[in-house]
Design a protein around this nucleic acid. Structure first.
Lengths: 351, 351
DNA sequence: GCGTAGGATTGAACCGATTCAAGAAAGCAA
DNA sequence: TTGCTTTCTTGAATCGGTTCAATCCTACGC
């Protein structure tokens, strides 16, 4: 690095033109006479000028041309969790197309998250509200930048958000299995409330704090009741979306005389873990047990058998979210997006 | 958004203090009398001041407090490729700890990449040079920011880089299998040169443009020759690290009368694909065929059987890279890091 | 030869903060 | 009361560009 970094003003002086002209050479080359332009560029190169500093420029312009994606999770979450990954890949794609930068901001501990959000150089945020959504929304609000919440577990209508139709999607999933002839189900739920794992009853579902999980449960019930299956007869086990809790749940669900012939998993992650457990247990999927997931992550299509699931239109979600943030045209109402049933090899009629 | 956004100056005026004092209230609260401080904060809140604007602040400070990770790939690469993911997760961790932001910059097409690199608001770059490394290095150089290249396929000593000991690691991998008693090997290589897939001979290896792949091949050879296995007798198939090319390679390797009893895969990704193919083909791993990977991505530990591999110390690599970039203390020489053999279930003595 | 249209260039204001030398007020000792 | 600290606060300079109104040329028409 040259010691005293070269500024635009230095180049201008060395080239014998005004700073205004020098600036034009870089940001509006068409307006300056070719002769002069070449001379200035020449001088710049000779001096080793690195081009207009972004900070100076953006101070003037006020736009960073980047958006931040935030979550109340360690940063590694973005690369580990299949859902987050699928979503980010989609967001990336959209950003790529529009030449927008992407910054990852997150932290598990509140203080750091606060600071990270405050200091992220972005024009707006996409919030991944899987957990601790309100905290995130609140922090982001203070920043006074446009933002849109994804997968928000909160019914506050003043928060711009895009979510999928959890209730409707879950209903379709359950109906799919019921129509195949299944009558004995087991549900593996994503988080309903903080710090709880284990079997849950109807009352717990109804007062769940995470609406995503709650709505999916309600959707399952709704569809199954149309087939004469009472909600009391559908065991639900709350997991925290990880291997140990999912396996504990399966252990319980399959410890009864008449175990389920179909598993309703509230996430593909859970579904994939379930399939592994079932096979290790000597049960074949889908012959012995059918499994349906929720989310539609790419991994679901790459295993054998393929995972039947309710697919979120990640590309569409990403497109809308990025657009909303960039144009500061956050939806005034909560937007709802449909999920679609993708049938692969993990579901079939019961034996 | 309030129309005329509120500036620090506005708050200062409204509170009846100088701008300097107002600034201190936010950035050095201890220096201003409590009474005044509270009054200013109060006024700020009343006016809806969002806190010191970052752009103004950073213009002054010159530091963005963020680093960029760049690759010549579509942005989604960061979330799809296991190696990139593992590395980024590690980088995330380090950044998290030091309160540094993380920006992803990339593009497959050169023009966009150029622009993205030029306009990324970061203090420095970590370059993922899996492919098109020189291009990336060149572009980044122009930006005149500190950077360090990872997995660089180039021997130019003027480029600060951190790489793993590909030759030594590969030798350990091959030795591990040879010591188990294997004598018939097949190699599934990562890219050796652009736009080529298929079996390769000794000459192609020696003039490969990607030194990572070349060195791994050399390492395999070196170790195997110590066991009396000639390089001519080790078939090598070049893939592009994806499913179709890996399967084509396996198809070929196993189409001979005496197929290999051990597969040397130059990436875990390839190894995992290989294991799937072998099983689908009715061959059990490790009983019929042993497979060893390279990289040590987390997925390798989560499958059944676990993948034996040469693990890169991702955390260490990330730590050094981030440190180098942040402190503008890029290694003057090319740093080399050792990889370690992690033995899991995918390797065993031959039948 | 004069007036003028037109484009190229200049110079200064401005973006929104931080910083620091210097000034003001308050406290305390003599 | 004067002198000397100590503690805050002020005002102006600064960071590195962009922008725009004003000015300067040049060439062209009459």
């Amino acid at each position: 690095m040259a010691k005293g970094t070269i500024r635009l003003a230095d180049v201008a002086k060395a080239a014998g033109v005004s700073q205004g002209t020098a600036s034009n050479v870089f940001s509006r080359p068409d307006v300056v006479r070719e002769e002069v332009r070449e001379h200035v560029l020449e001088t710049a190169k000779r001096l080793g000028y690195a081009g207009p500093s972004l900070t100076g420029r953006l101070l003037r312009a006020g736009k960073v041309n980047a958006i931040g994606v935030a979550a109340v999770e360690p940063l590694a979450y973005f690369f580990d969790d299949p859902w987050a990954r699928a979503l980010l890949a989609a967001v990336s794609q959209v950003c790529d197309a529009s030449g927008t930068g992407l910054a990852l901001v997150s932290a598990k501990d509140r203080q750091k998250l606060d600071w990270n959000i405050k200091s992220a150089l972005v024009d707006g945020f996409i919030l991944l509200c899987v957990e601790g959504g309100e905290k995130l929304v609140q922090l982001t609000r203070e920043r006074q930048l446009p933002f849109v919440a994804l997968a928000l577990n909160d019914d506050d209508p003043s928060i711009a958000s895009i979510s999928v139709d959890n209730l409707g999607g879950a209903a379709i999933a359950a109906r799919h299995l019921a129509e195949l002839g299944h009558r004995r189900f087991g549900v593996l739920a994503t988080e309903l409330s903080d710090d709880h794992v284990g079997p849950v009853g109807i009352a717990e579902i109804e007062r769940a704090i995470y609406s995503t999980s709650r709505d999916r449960a309600l959707g399952y019930w709704q569809a199954l009741e149309a087939f004469g299956i009472r909600r009391e007869d559908v065991p639900i086990y709350e997991t925290i979306n990880d291997k140990p809790s999912v396996e504990a749940g399966l252990e319980l669900l399959f410890s009864v005389p008449e175990p389920p012939t179909a598993i309703l998993a509230m996430s593909d992650n859970i579904a994939l873990l379930a399939i592994n457990w079932l096979r290790a247990r000597g049960l074949s999927v889908p012959q012995d047990v059918s499994v349906i997931g929720f989310d539609g992550v790419p991994e679901g299509g790459m295993v054998e058998p393929g995972l039947t699931t309710m697919a979120q239109p990640f590309a569409e979600i990403a497109r809308r979210a990025v657009k909303a943030v960039l144009e500061d045209a956050v939806p005034t109402e909560r937007e709802m997006i449909e999920v679609t049933l993708v049938v692969r090899g993990s579901t079939a009629p019961p034996r």
